[in-house]
Design a protein around this nucleic acid. Structure first.
Length: 259
DNA sequence: ATGACGATTGGAAATCGA
């Protein structure tokens, strides 16, 4: 069984590449972030025509997450129970479902914008709510994983140049502490292998030739419980999908499971 | 080649991203 997570930066703009990639990669379940569409405009019919069901939590131009599966999509829960609002709005940043033998979340963690910003506080609260919401499944016997754009680089090795990010979001101690707290529920970081270079970056800015220069970050993560981690046979970042016209600024992270 | 930011809303310029 092949699962993957991909911040597509608009599923409308990415649809041709998304459909081609699903077929080429043979992915059974895809966790999507930044759909940037309403649920009504989500391309569920185009996905159904190629054999995938969709579960969507999306409200418009910002955020939005989905699960796309051809191996079952049951017990769908949209949103993060107990999660914080931002500016009085409950943003669509999480959705979970059971896909065959595994329970999966697709998450788009708040960016944080600047250290000390209201959005940064919101990000830390969001992480705490996520930890509380997944703790039972994380400790359970069923293969379980939280996949998505975490907007945190777990270590300095996950950033192309740590000195560039001093005092920036994505690398601060409170954000990394939030990852540690999340792992303490029984989850571990399923680190993918890179297809080129030393580090498995998953995001490269569109600007300043970041991708050709490999100025990237590993911020798209797969956190799996013990039954999940034991079933992993391979994991890699499909950097080929970051190339060329019409690419997202994130590459898919692929995980193969023996389940 | 992997190449100098892209998507959305709205119908220009602002906002967001990390």
């Amino acid at each position: 069984m092949r699962i993957a997570t991909w911040n597509v930066n608009s599923i409308t703009a990415r649809l041709p590449r998304l459909l081609a990639w699903l077929e080429k990669s043979g992915t059974d379940v895809l966790c999507v972030q930044e759909t940037k569409t309403t649920a009504e405009a989500f391309p569920a019919e185009a996905l159904r025509e190629v054999g995938y069901e969709s579960a969507v939590n999306a409200t418009g131009r910002w955020n939005g997450v989905a699960l796309i599966s051809r191996v079952g999509l049951d017990d769908v829960v949209p949103g993060l129970p107990g999660g914080p609002d931002y500016d009085g709005v409950t943003e669509p940043r999480a959705i979970s479902a059971t896909c065959g033998p595994v329970r999966l979340w697709s998450v788009y963690v708040p960016n944080g914008r600047e250290v000390g910003h209201d959005h940064y506080t919101y990000k830390l609260r969001w992480f705490e709510a996520l930890r509380a919401a997944v703790s039972d499944d994380a400790a359970g016997p069923r293969p379980f994983a939280v996949l998505g754009d975490y907007n945190v680089a777990p270590t300095d090795d996950d950033v192309w140049d740590p000195t560039v990010f001093e005092d920036s979001t994505h690398v601060t101690a409170p954000e990394r502490d939030a990852l540690t707290a999340l792992r303490s529920t029984g989850l571990s970081d399923v680190v993918p292998r890179p297809l080129k270079y030393e580090r498995p970056y998953t995001y490269w800015d569109y600007r300043q030739l970041a991708f050709p220069k490999n100025r990237g970050m590993r911020i798209d993560l797969v956190y799996g419980n013990e039954p999940f981690a034991k079933a992993v046979s391979d994991s890699y970042v499909d950097r080929e999908e970051r190339k060329g016209k019409g690419a997202s600024d994130h590459a898919p992270v692929v995980v193969d499971l023996d389940v």
